[in-house]
Simulated assay, not measured.
Amino acid sequence: MKALKLQKPFGLDNIKLTEIDDPGQPGPGEIRVRVKASSLNYHDYGVANGSSPTEDGRIPMADGAGVVEAVGEGVEEFEVGDKVVSTFFPHWETGPALVADFSSTPGDGIDGYAREVVVRPTRYFTHQPSNYTHAESATLTTAGLTAWRALVVNGGIKPGDSVLVLGSGGVSVFACVLAKSLGATVFATSSSDQKLQRYKELGADHVINYEDDPEWGKTVSKLTEGRGVDHVIEVGGPGTLPQSINAVALSGHIALIGVLTGMKGEVPTAKLMGKQARLQGLIVGSRAHQQDLVRAIDASGVKPVIDKCFGLDELADAFRYEEAGKHFGKICLEF
């Protein structure tokens, strides 16, 4: 069967399409899944280009969605024909966070979903939303679940809250759609007026071009009559955190999700303390969180935004498209 492998020296030019052995039939507690789609994340890009080192020959991609082809002895949760989507932390099933690294994450510490078939224990998957395509479902493993945990699990969002999303990547765009479905007011930033128009079409109430307005945090505060927003989806890290602190309300919540502007930087701690705001880091979520997300999607009909889809053998081109920063929402693979 076909699979992609990362080969040393790591880089987008060294993603190789190859033939690997079929994994065979599932054993007790396992399911065999025909993979139909994946979606790209900056974490996958870091693994592929070598900035997040992994083993030579690693099969990339953390996200995978497909169809159950066979079930092993004792499996009751899934049946042949079920549509399933992968979990980011297969060993974190429920409760508080149990992992602080990517040693068990598919596509990083273990082989991922850039292949046609996998055989895995049931904890590696949940059911897909009933009305989702495979590509739409594949956006949930990393981006969708991160937005869900930031706003719902950690943030406790409620109707009437306000949310600020930064940039136009998969997490931020899904957070916008999710927040609107939950009755929130949404503020969005981007350096592209075209992308800001896309945000308006999704229902964003206020949009700000951060290149035209480098003090966008203060602008958000003014737009809320000095109150600030209840939730910030912070994907930039040190380069954007000072403005996010300006934007957040007293006793508000900043979900620190990404570090796109760098790994280190100064934090205006006195201002954060004065705001009495909660700055909370998070990495995706548990299997139970994902099951809750799927139920919420089935109830609400919320849909992700997919910018473009590529074939399995076009992964390098897909990463280059991501690298260019022209996308709005998610980039997917379909195969």
Rank of each mutant, 00 (worst) to 15 (best):
D108W: 09
P129I: 14
T269G: 12
Q276Y: 10
A247V: 12
F125R: 00
N14D: 07
V153Y: 01
I257F: 03
G155K: 11
A255H: 05
A249N: 11
L293G: 00
T261H: 01
D317R: 11
R287M: 02
C332H: 08
Y45V: 13
T142S: 13
G329K: 11
A247Y: 15
P129W: 05
S162A: 13
A150M: 11
L98E: 13
G301M: 10
G281T: 14
E136G: 13
G311Y: 01
V67M: 05
H253S: 04
G325H: 01
A288S: 10
A288K: 12
L140K: 12
F10A: 14
E76P: 03
P214D: 04
F88D: 00
L241Q: 06
G236E: 06
S103L: 06
F174C: 10
L202S: 07
K308Q: 13
A138V: 00
T224H: 12
F78L: 05
A288P: 04
L241T: 10
A255F: 11
E225S: 11
T146P: 00
L223T: 09
A3N: 05
T269F: 14
T139V: 03
V207I: 10
P26H: 05
V118L: 08
A270P: 05
G325W: 01
T224M: 10
H134M: 12
L182P: 00
L256H: 00
A249S: 15
K218A: 15
V80P: 08
Y45K: 09
N49M: 06
C176T: 15
D161L: 02
P238N: 02
R287P: 08
G301H: 08
Y132M: 07
D307G: 06
L164A: 08
Q291Y: 06
T269P: 04
V259A: 03
E55L: 06
P90N: 02
E73N: 14
D230F: 13
F174D: 07
E234I: 15
S39F: 09
V153N: 02
P9E: 12
L223N: 09
P106T: 00
D298R: 05
A188T: 04
A147E: 05
V207Q: 07
E30M: 08
T224Q: 13
G64T: 10
G50P: 08
L12M: 07
G160Q: 09
F328N: 09
D313V: 15
T122C: 11
K308I: 09
N154R: 13
S191V: 03
D161M: 10
A65W: 03
N14M: 09
E79K: 03
I257N: 01
F125Y: 15
V80L: 08
G107A: 02
D213S: 11
K83A: 09
G160Y: 11
A318E: 00
I297L: 11
L315Y: 04
I15L: 13
S286H: 10
L250C: 06
W216D: 00
A147C: 12
P129Y: 02
P238C: 01
M263W: 02
E55G: 07
I59N: 03
G66P: 14
H231F: 13
H43F: 11
A70R: 01
I31L: 05
S190A: 09
R278I: 15
A296Q: 02
I257Y: 01
T189D: 04
I245V: 14
T146Y: 01
T141C: 08
G285R: 10
A62V: 00
S190M: 11
F125H: 06
V186Q: 05
I297E: 04
E211C: 09
C176N: 15
H206D: 10
N154H: 10
K36I: 03
